[in-house]
Design a protein around this nucleic acid. Sequence first.
DNA 1: ATATGTGCAAATCCTTTGCATAGAA
DNA 2: TTCTATGCAAAGGATTTGCACATAT
Lengths: 136, 136
Amino acid sequence: MNAIHPDMVNERLRGCGILPTAQRVRIASVLLAAPLHLTADQILAELRNRGEKVSKATVYNTLNLLAGKGVIRQLAVDGDRAWFDSNTTPHFHFQDVDTGALTDLPPETVRFEQLPPPPAGMEYAGIELFIRLRRV
Amino acid sequence: MNAIHPDMVNERLRGCGILPTAQRVRIASVLLAAPLHLTADQILAELRNRGEKVSKATVYNTLNLLAGKGVIRQLAVDGDRAWFDSNTTPHFHFQDVDTGALTDLPPETVRFEQLPPPPAGMEYAGIELFIRLRRV
DNA sequence: ATATGTGCAAATCCTTTGCATAGAA
DNA sequence: TTCTATGCAAAGGATTTGCACATAT
């Protein structure tokens, strides 16, 4: 798996007003090493795999904290579990319906010719686009 | 709340190879009365409200059965709970981020200028588009 | 009679929470 | 110190499941 220098993660967290504790840096390092889509359990497994000690509760707490600060994005793909995306730029996703795996859509491959105006008194808060794929 | 004639539901189920038991007809009647987005609990509440006796297990079993047969569609909006949509024609949704409520997007208000081709060996299995809204 | 559906309660899975301990400022 | 984070285990909420009973053909 990809690596990112702890100092970078450290600064990134500090820059968002997040106290960069050892656990938080470990957790964030997994996701921030590359544009990735991971579940809480996958992150925990990767950390265990690296021999790094973090509790499940702290993984969840930290992921929620990071998502709240906009460092990562939480995705509701299926009702089963939450996915966390280290790519916070506007983009959409392919999803393999069999494995559940997510892939970023190259942003330039999606263009809307027309989108509905928000209803009166409402404004856009985000657009979620999933293209589900199955093996031919 | 809207009503639909039980006989219609009956036939609809039979047409899909679903044995139209009393409970199934009751459950399906709630959703099929109109284009609706409801959670399992909302459906159960509506049935209780009507004085109709159905167990929670049967509501879930039936909704899964109906979704499997394509009579309704299951939506993963947020990770919290499943929504069931009686509109099975291709369409997209607004979602109020505060209430979670879903609204159908008028289909003609969304047009894609470009969509990515499916990766090699894969084919489209569906497109999910949620436009999240918040109060101004 | 034989298959299938229903209901209850218990079990599961993901996620959150309470609280005592550990760490940071 | 004083405030905040961590970890464990327990709690929570949505959904599924096992099994005895009821219903459909």
